[in-house]
Amino acid sequence: MARITVDTGKCIGSAQCVLAAPDVFDQDDDGFVMVLDDNPSGEAETTARTARGICPAQAITVHD
């Protein structure tokens, strides 16, 4: 289990998180990041970490 937070002020809507971790992240109507599951575990947690690594705006934090 890991807690996920996002900085929507940094988000640039590239949607890389939505593609990498569709169970954890989505986009709102304006295209900005929305967290669907802020406590992912197992496979979802792994994908959330991938999303953190590839987010071009470095807007995702994974709290261990």
Binding site: I12, G13, A15, Q27, D29, D30, G31
Partner: peptide, 12 residues
């Protein structure tokens, strides 16, 4: 600009 254009390029 980015804010104006993001909704045009969402995954959906």
């Amino acid at each position: 600009f980015r804010k104006a254009l993001i909704p045009e390029f969402t995954v959906r």
